[in-house]
Simulated scan of single mutants.
Amino acid sequence: MVDTTQISEHMEVVGSDGQHVGSVDNLGIKLTKKDPLANGQHHYIKLELVASIDGGKVVLNVPASEAISMEKEVEN
């Protein structure tokens, strides 16, 4: 399990393929709604998808396309 205390606001979240998924808004992982891929909505990614923290980025254990399809959209 990754030490989630290393995850901070505005860190980039990338898939295992290195492709952009979003940016951390707060832990949960809540992605910012201002991110270009967010369509103006907050989305959450499950913490169990986090594989590592590398170079100031949150790296997931699934490719970006899979992570995006698994995101849970939430009302603002």
Rank of each mutant, 00 (worst) to 15 (best):
V2D: 06
V2S: 06
T4G: 03
T5P: 00
T5R: 14
Q6H: 04
I7W: 11
E9M: 09
H10W: 14
H10E: 10
M11F: 11
E12T: 13
E12F: 04
V13D: 11
V13C: 07
V13I: 15
V14E: 14
V14R: 09
G15W: 06
G15Q: 06
S16D: 10
S16G: 01
S16V: 00
D17S: 13
G18V: 11
G18Q: 07
G18S: 12
Q19M: 06
Q19R: 10
Q19H: 08
V21Y: 04
V21F: 00
G22P: 02
S23F: 12
S23L: 08
S23G: 08
V24P: 05
D25H: 15
D25G: 13
D25V: 00
N26Q: 10
L27H: 11
G28K: 12
G28D: 07
G28C: 09
I29M: 12
L31A: 05
L31K: 04
T32Q: 05
T32D: 02
T32C: 05
T32A: 09
K33G: 03
K34M: 03
P36A: 02
L37T: 04
L37Y: 05
L37R: 06
A38W: 05
A38P: 03
A38E: 08
N39M: 12
N39I: 06
Q41C: 08
Q41F: 05
Q41E: 05
H42A: 06
H43R: 14
Y44E: 01
Y44D: 04
K46G: 09
K46M: 12
L47Y: 10
L49G: 00
L49R: 12
V50D: 02
A51G: 15
A51S: 14
A51E: 13
I53K: 00
D54L: 11
D54E: 15
D54H: 13
D54M: 13
G56A: 12
G56V: 02
V58M: 10
L60K: 09
L60R: 09
N61K: 10
N61M: 04
P63S: 07
P63Y: 06
P63W: 04
A64W: 05
I68S: 04
I68Y: 00
I68P: 04
S69P: 08
S69C: 03
E71Q: 15
E71P: 02
E73M: 11
E73K: 15
E75D: 15
N76M: 14
